[in-house]
Design a protein around this nucleic acid. Structure first.
Lengths: 307, 307
DNA sequence: GTCTATACAGCGATAGAC
DNA sequence: GTCTATCGCTGTATAGAC
C-alpha cells in the first residue's frame, strides 16, 4: 500500500465511443455499416439482424402495437420547460386504429427500428445514444424514427417492454409444470438465462431501464405508467420468488434473507448481458455451455445441493 | 401469449432524472441540497459525505496525485474535431511537483470534488451527468472543477481509479495469509463485497468504467493508458482467479469453465452496487448481514460445500 | 482558486417538401 | 413514409475578471 503500484501512474482515458458522422444525404449502399468502429470480438450483438426476425417476435410485436404519448426528456420536476411540445399531450396518433390498414408493413418497419435501437442502447446506454445514432445504424435519417416513435424515451420504452414481454413469454408457461419447486425453478432459470444470451441487446436495455426506473423521479401524469412498468417487473420476479420460497420450505434450497437472495440470484442470471460475447464457430453449443454454467452457479448460490 | 397481459397496455415513461437548474450566482446556504429530488430510500449514497473522508482515502489519494492529459469526449476515431483543445496535449500542469506547496488543501478540494462526482456518476452514469450537475452538488460552479480536472472524462477517470485503488488496498494484503486457498478466497471476497457496500458510489463508477473501457475505441495516443487501466483490472481479478484455481485443485471448489465462473463470481460480488440501499438504523449490522449473504451466495455458486 | 461570461458543437424535436 | 432543413436548448470547455 505504501509503494505506488504500476497502475497508479498518471493515466488518461477517453470514454465515449467513436461513431461516424450522422447521415444526411450521403447514402450508405450496404445496409450494415459502422462495423469499422468495433473491434473484432466486441459484441456485434449476440443476435445477427436477420436471424432475430423470428415469428415469436412478430407475434409479440403485434400484441404490443401501440405506444402513446411522447414522454419528455425534461430534467425538471416542476413545470416542464424545454423545447418539446408544451402541451405535454398525446402523440403517436392512435396507432392502434391504423393497425388494420397498413398492418404488417408498418410493424416490420417498427421492428427494424427497435432492433437497431436495442443495439445502440446496448452499446452506449440511454443518454449516450442519440436518435441520429439509431438512424445511422439503419442507414436512414431520424425522420423515419420520429414517424414511428414520439420521442427518444418512447423508443427506449418500446425496446424495454419488448424485452420484458419476450421474457414473460419464455418463462411464464413453465410456472405450472409438474415436479418439485426446485425443478421448476431450475427450468425457469435456464429459460431466463437463455433469453439473456439470445436476445442480449434487448435484455441489456431492460436492465438499464430498470435502473432508470428505480431512480427516475416522475411528473404526476407519468407516474402511473411508470408504476405499471415496475409492477410488471415485480410480477416477473415474483414468478421466481414464490418458487424460491417453496423450494426452501421443501428443504431443497438454503439461503438467508429472501430479498437479498432474490437480488443476487437475478444479478447472477442476468450477468451474461454484461460479459457474454458469442463465438462465431459453434454458436449453439457455445450458448448452451454458458447457460448451463450460469444456471448451475445461480442454483448453487441459493444453496441447492444437486439433483 | 395469445391474450395480451395487463402490462401490454399502452404506456409511456420518462427516463431522465429531474434535477435543479445549474448554479450561477444563487448561492446555496446548506452544503447538502438536491435531496428533494430523491425519494426516501432511494440511495442517498451508502456513505455520508463527512464519514467517508477517512485517513485511508487521504493516504490513497496522496499516492495518486496526478492525472495528465485532458482526454477528449470526441465521437470520431479519425482527426478528432470538436470544441476541445486541438493539440490533444498535456494539461493538469504537473500537479505532482506542486504537491509539496499547497499540498493538503488542494488535495482536500480534489477529494471533495471526487466524492461529489462519484455520487453524480453513480446516479446518472457518465453521459447522463453534466459537469454542472457535479458543481451543483458541491454548491459551486464548474470553474472550480475544470481547475482541478482537465475534462469530464478526466474527472470520471479519477473517480474510477480511486475506486480501484481502494479495492486493491483492501484486498491485496489478504492474498498471502495462511490457510487453504478457499479460506483466503473467502476472506478476499468478503473484503471485496465490503468495499462494494461501504464505497458504493465509487464502485459503481468502477463498474461503469469497466464497461466503457470494454467497448471504447481509442485513438492511438490514448490506447496505452487505457490498456494500463485494463491491465490493472485484470491484475485485480487475477488475485481471485488464481485462488479459485488452487481451491479447485484442492477439491474445495467445483465449477466448470474458469472464465465463466470468474465472470459470474464477480458480477455476484459486485451486485450490491446495483441494489443495496443502506438502512439508516443499525447501519453496521445491516451491512454485515448483506455482506455475509452475498459472500455465501458467491462461494456456494463456485461449488463450495461449507467449512 | 473560484466565479462570470461566452463560444461552439451536439442533440431532441418539428415543419414541410417529396 | 421518409428525407431535408431548421429551431432552440443543453452541455463541454475556455478566457478572463476578481
Amino acid at each position: 500500500m505504501t509503494c505506488a503500484p504500476p497502475w497508479t501512474r498518471p493515466v488518461a482515458i477517453i470514454l465515449p465511443i467513436p461513431v461516424a458522422p450522422p447521415v444526411t444525404s450521403a447514402v450508405l449502399p450496404e445496409t450494415e455499416k459502422r462495423s469499422e468502429t468495433k473491434s473484432a470480438n466486441v459484441c456485434s450483438s449476440s443476435v445477427s439482424r436477420g436471424a432475430f426476425h423470428s415469428p415469436l417476435v412478430d407475434n409479440l410485436l403485434s400484441s404490443m402495437l401501440t405506444f402513446r404519448l411522447g414522454a419528455r426528456a425534461a430534467r425538471e420536476v416542476t413545470p416542464i420547460r424545454g423545447h418539446r411540445r408544451e402541451e405535454g399531450q398525446v402523440r403517436g396518433t392512435a396507432m392502434a386504429s391504423e393497425a388494420s390498414q397498413t398492418g404488417a408493413a408498418q410493424e416490420s418497419s417498427r421492428l427494424e427500428i427497435l432492433q437497431a435501437a436495442a443495439e445502440c442502447f446496448e452499446q452506449r446506454g440511454f443518454s449516450g445514444t442519440s436518435v441520429d445514432d439509431v438512424a445511422r445504424m439503419l442507414g436512414c435519417t431520424k425522420g423515419r424514427i420520429y414517424h414511428h416513435f414520439g420521442s427518444k424515451a418512447d423508443l427506449f420504452a418500446a425496446v424495454f417492454r419488448l424485452g420484458m414481454e419476450m421474457n414473460f413469454a419464455a418463462v411464464e408457461p413453465l410456472r405450472h409444470t409438474d415436479g418439485p419447486a426446485v425443478a421448476r425453478l431450475r427450468m425457469m432459470a435456464e429459460e431466463h438465462v437463455r433469453q439473456m444470451v439470445t436476445t442480449k441487446s434487448f435484455q441489456r436495455v431492460v436492465w438499464d431501464g430498470m435502473e432508470l426506473l428505480m431512480r427516475g423521479a416522475l411528473t404526476p401524469e407519468q407516474r402511473d405508467e411508470c408504476l405499471r412498468l415496475q409492477q410488471s417487473r415485480k410480477r416477473y420476479s415474483t414468478l421466481f420468488r414464490t418458487l424460491m420460497e417453496e423450494a426452501k420450505a421443501d428443504g431443497d434450497l438454503d439461503y438467508g434473507d429472501l430479498s437479498v437472495a432474490t437480488q443476487v440470484f437475478f444479478t447472477c442470471m442476468n450477468s451474461p448481458v454484461f460479459w457474454y460475447r458469442p463465438r462465431v464457430a459453434d454458436l449453439r453449443n457455445d450458448q448452451d455451455t454458458v447457460i448451463e454454467q450460469v444456471v448451475r452457479f445461480a442454483m448453487n448460490g441459493l444453496g441447492w445441493k444437486g439433483e
